[in-house]
Amino acid sequence: MIEIHLVLIFMIAAAVIAVSVKDLLSSVVAIGAVGVGLAMAFLLLKAPDLAILQLVVEILSLIILVHATTRQDLPFSTSGRWLFNTISTLFFVVVFLMVAHKALKGIPIVGASLPGAVQPIMENVPAKEETGNLVATILMKTRAIDTLGEVAALFTAVVGVLAISRKIGRTGGGNGL
C-alpha cells in the first residue's frame, strides 16, 4: 500500500501547485498531473476500466482547458533546457513502466473472483443470457437505469451547448453550426 500513498502525496502536491501558481498554463498542467495521478491510483486499486476512462477524459478536459486559458501565441522555447527535458522524460517513462508492470500484474483474471455485491446478481442472471458477455448483460439489464442517467446527463449538456452555440452562430454569420 506504499505506492498508493506515494501517488496520493504526488496528487496533493500537484493540486497545491495548481492552486498557488500564478501562470494559468502551469496551473492547467498541474491539474492534468492530478488527473494522471488519479488514473494511476485507479490502476493500483485494481480498476483498469476506470483508469482508462479517467486517462481519456483527463486528456480531453486538458485540451479544452488549454484551449480556454491561452488566447495568443505563447513563447515555445525548449532551447537551453535539453538536458533537464531529456532526464525528466526518461525518469517519467521509467516510473510509468514500473508502475504499469506492478499494477497490471496484480489485476486478477476477469471472472476469477467475484466481489460480494455482484454475487447475487450473477446468480440471478437467467441461463439463456449467459452467452459469454455476462458483464454487458448486467450492464444492460440490471444497471440500465444507471447507464441511462449517465448518458442522459451528457445528452442534456450537449443539447444545452448546441443551443447556446446556435445563437452565437446566428449573430456572427453562418459558420457550420
Binding site: 451528457l154 450537449v158 451547448v161 452555440s165 452565437i168 452562430g169
Partner: peptide, 13 residues
C-alpha cells in the same frame, strides 16, 4: 456529444 461540446467551445471563443 463530446465533439459537439468541443466545437461549440471553439466557436464561442
Amino acid at each position: 456529444g463530446l465533439f459537439a461540446i468541443f466545437i461549440a467551445l471553439v466557436l464561442a471563443s
